[in-house]
Computed example of a mutant assay.
Amino acid sequence: MIRLLIADDQQLAREGLRQLLRITAGTVKIHVSGVLSKIGVHTRVQAAIHAYRSGLVSSDEEK
């Protein structure tokens, strides 16, 4: 789930979340915005940095 949130391709990430959760693209956008707000960031890049620094993901998971 975190990988989808911080995916490089925003459209691909949104579509992946939409399919996974079986919700509309608009609903995904609302939920992603809520997550970004709750962790105090404005962009998916900042969310990715936050995830790495918090130990939610590691570089080993990308391989």
Results as ranks from 00 to 15, higher is better:
residue 1 M to I: 15
residue 2 I to Y: 09
residue 2 I to V: 15
residue 3 R to N: 15
residue 3 R to C: 13
residue 3 R to P: 15
residue 5 L to Y: 04
residue 5 L to H: 05
residue 5 L to D: 05
residue 6 I to L: 11
residue 7 A to D: 12
residue 7 A to P: 02
residue 7 A to C: 12
residue 7 A to M: 14
residue 9 D to S: 09
residue 10 Q to G: 03
residue 10 Q to T: 10
residue 11 Q to H: 05
residue 12 L to P: 01
residue 12 L to K: 08
residue 12 L to N: 05
residue 14 R to H: 09
residue 15 E to H: 08
residue 16 G to C: 07
residue 16 G to W: 02
residue 17 L to D: 02
residue 18 R to E: 13
residue 19 Q to T: 11
residue 19 Q to I: 11
residue 19 Q to W: 09
residue 21 L to P: 02
residue 21 L to E: 12
residue 21 L to H: 13
residue 22 R to G: 13
residue 23 I to C: 12
residue 24 T to S: 13
residue 24 T to E: 08
residue 27 T to E: 12
residue 27 T to C: 05
residue 28 V to W: 00
residue 28 V to E: 03
residue 30 I to S: 06
residue 31 H to G: 04
residue 31 H to A: 12
residue 31 H to L: 10
residue 32 V to T: 04
residue 33 S to G: 14
residue 33 S to T: 07
residue 33 S to C: 06
residue 34 G to T: 05
residue 34 G to W: 01
residue 34 G to P: 05
residue 34 G to S: 03
residue 35 V to P: 07
residue 36 L to D: 00
residue 36 L to Y: 05
residue 38 K to V: 04
residue 39 I to D: 02
residue 39 I to K: 02
residue 40 G to A: 06
residue 40 G to E: 06
residue 40 G to Q: 03
residue 41 V to I: 11
residue 41 V to N: 04
residue 41 V to K: 01
residue 41 V to Y: 04
residue 41 V to M: 07
residue 41 V to H: 05
residue 41 V to E: 04
residue 42 H to G: 07
residue 42 H to K: 12
residue 42 H to Q: 12
residue 43 T to W: 00
residue 43 T to V: 06
residue 46 Q to V: 09
residue 47 A to I: 10
residue 47 A to S: 11
residue 47 A to Q: 07
residue 48 A to N: 12
residue 48 A to S: 15
residue 49 I to G: 06
residue 49 I to H: 10
residue 49 I to W: 09
residue 49 I to V: 15
residue 49 I to Y: 11
residue 50 H to C: 04
residue 50 H to A: 10
residue 51 A to C: 14
residue 51 A to W: 02
residue 52 Y to D: 11
residue 52 Y to Q: 11
residue 54 S to N: 02
residue 54 S to G: 07
residue 54 S to P: 01
residue 55 G to I: 00
residue 55 G to R: 00
residue 55 G to E: 00
residue 57 V to H: 00
residue 57 V to T: 03
residue 58 S to E: 06
residue 58 S to A: 06
residue 59 S to A: 14
residue 59 S to I: 14
residue 59 S to R: 13
residue 60 D to N: 01
residue 61 E to K: 05
residue 61 E to W: 11
residue 62 E to A: 11
residue 62 E to M: 10
residue 63 K to T: 03
